[in-house]
Every structure is written in C-alpha cells, then in structure tokens.
Design a protein around this nucleic acid. Structure first.
Lengths: 188, 188
DNA sequence: ATTGACTATTTAACACTGTTAAGTCAATAG
DNA sequence: CTATTGACTTAACAGTGTTAAATAGTCAAT
C-alpha cells in the first residue's frame, strides 16, 4: 500500500523510535512488531536497516554511553574527570527507562578497528596524564560501578525495601568518590 | 502417563534444574518447556511450584548472592570483609554461565519482613563496627561494582577487543581495592 | 467400600515473539 | 522501454510465557 506516502526509513529513525518505544512500554514492550507499527511499517521492514534485534539494542546502548561521554565537561584533573564521568553515566542510565537492563544485555561494538576505539575512549584521561592501560582500567571500574549501581537500583522490589534505610543518591556519590579517591591513593 | 513413576517435583529440584539448564544452553536456552522436559514434565507443571518465570530467575539470583555471602570467611576487619565479599561475588558471577545478565535482569526478593532481611545482610559488617546505614551503603557499592564488572566483562565483543589491552582480573582487583580504600579514607 | 477433597500433573489453547522467504510496487539507470 | 535496485509487504515457521480445563493419584472421613 501507500509505500511512498512517507519518506523511507533510515537507521537513525529506527533507533530513536526504539528509544521512544522503550520509554513507553519498557524493555519487554520493545518488540519488532510494535516498533514497526510505531514507524508505520511492518516488522520485517526493520530488517532492511538492521541485522538483528541484538544489533539494535547494541546501537541503543552505544548511544547511551556516547551521551554520557559527551556530557562530561572538560576537566583539568583526571580524578575530576572520572567523577564527572561517573555522574554522567548515572544520569544517562537514569534518563531512559530500563537503560541499565538494556546495557547489561546488549552486546558491545562489533568494531573492527580495535585499537582505535580504545584509544578514543581513553583519550580524555590520557590527555590528563594517565597512560592508556591505566586509563582504560580506571574507566572500566567507573563504568562497572555506575552500571552495576543502576542495575541494583532499578531492581523494583529491592529498591522499595531498601529505600527506607538507604539514600541511593548519597550512597552512589559516596561510592563513586571512594572509588576515585582509592585510585588516587594508588598513584601516589 | 506414568505420573507416579517419579516422586513429585519440589521447588529445589526446579531451581537446580534451572541452573543446569542455564549452564548447558545459556540464558536464552532457559525456557519453561526445556526446563520442564529436563525434569520429565510438561511446562505448565512448573507453574504449580512457581508463580512466574521472573520468580524463578529471582530465586536463582538469590542463590547466587547467597553463595557469595556464604563464601566470605570470617574477618576481623570490615575492610577485609568487603574485599573478600567483592572477590566472592566475582567468583559467584563467574561460576555460572550468564550469571551477570541473570542478576541484572532478575527482580529482588519479594520479602515482606523488610527490616529483618536488611539487618541480616548488614550483620557481618555491623559486627565489625559499622553502623547499619553505612554497612548497607558500602555493601551496595561493592555489589554494584562486582555486578557491573561481571556484566561488563561478560560482554563478548567488548571482552574480545579489550582483553589485549586490559587485564581483567588485575583491573577488577585494583578497582575493588580502590573502592574499599576509599571507604577507609572516609571513616578516618 | 465409597465419597470427597487435595495435590500434582496433562492437554489444549491463546497471544505473543524474532526471523526468514518470497512476492510486490515505485523509482531510477541504461 | 526494459532492467535493476531499494524498500517494503504478506505469509509463514518455530518458539515463547502463561492460563484454563480436564485428569489421575493419594489420602481422610463417612
């Protein structure tokens, strides 16, 4: 039917519609058919733009991480950068419904140019004086902490029964600060 | 058919069969029908012992955490306890295939006796001198770090392309130590 | 001994899911 | 004017979690 009534899809529209769908119905509501119908298209049409559902989830996760990286302001100290990065990750995870579960499930980049990506990721910390291996290690720890915290916190029942005795915002901040200060100690 | 040939199921057998199934076919291979057939039973029979698949996953996650708690030796120092706990968690997550994804997805305990559970969880640290709020906060951070790390590390492609430039075991250890040392700093 | 209740399971079915194969129509290139 | 390609549709497959109803086995009480 009206196949030319709408200009054709592209990958970006698919991904952003997927985010909208995620926001509305959560991760289990993010099915190919529903995503298709949101775009005025049948489900199999999506496979023209995407290989896999897993690939779609991967792109979404990538975008969440990219948003966090982009949100880190320029810093003059690697410790300050790590703190800002951790907070940005927390905001990024909290910014989309089920983001933590999504990122925990999604598969990473199938990037062929291996070293380049790592170098780009580590760049902000390398610019502040860390060597690359150490930069990657620290970043991995902060990402793990933030991702794990988001998973932990997003767990409904767990949240409900802990939030009487645990201030999540404050505890995250304490943990993050502890982690970064711990790194500081190891350098000196 | 031969309904009495086997003694009836119970919850424990279901859960441990679910672990066996997880080990064999991973998280996506853990379906009710396959779990049933492993137990010589049709899928709907499982719903006699279990409300939900989510409940089953919750029980499995609970068992993983319980195993980690049980594996922590008695310590004389809360910092040592946290380190041992973090390592035990890492071992527990690595011990079952897809454990990290499972725990990131699973919902927590629908435990009605809220304060009691929290008190039991915090007990080891309270016994070593921390107040309960602080104990819960520290534990939450260590759990988050270990869980996030396991998710991070379990991510196949990410792992493949980082493990040339990142020693996962060593980096986990560094991160955990940094976290706990950071906590130490905050007390003094 | 027979009735009845209770436990634990079966069969059948529903409404989905991701994904593939084959067909279809519009636009573009030669 | 024809052929090719891009972007989609319809139809279908195999599988999913879950519910409802029927059923067989076991036990207690009449």
């Amino acid at each position: 039917m009206a196949r030319t009534s709408q200009l054709p899809l592209d990958l970006d529209r698919v991904v952003s519609a997927a985010f909208a769908q995620l926001e509305e119905d959560g991760l289990e509501g993010l099915s190919m058919r529903r995503l298709g119908s949101r775009l005025g298209v049948q489900a199999p049409a999506l496979y023209w733009h995407i290989g896999d559902k897993a690939e779609l989830l991967g792109l979404m996760a990538r975008e969440i991480y990219a948003g966090a990286y982009a949100a880190v302001p320029q810093e003059t100290d690697w410790r300050a950068w790590l703190l800002a990065f951790g907070r940005a990750l927390r905001i990024a995870f909290a910014g989309h419904r089920d983001a933590a579960r999504l990122c925990a499930i999604a598969r990473g980049p199938s990037d062929p140019d291996i070293g380049e990506h790592a170098r780009r990721i580590a760049a902000p910390l390398v610019a502040l004086g860390l060597n690359q291996a150490r930069a990657l290690s620290c970043e991995a720890s902060v990402i793990s902490f933030a991702l794990g915290w988001a998973s932990f916190e997003a767990n409904g029942p767990m949240h409900d029964y802990l939030d009487e005795m645990l201030n999540f915002d404050e505890s995250f901040e304490r943990g993050l600060k502890a982690l970064v200060r711990g790194f500081e100690e190891m350098t000196s």
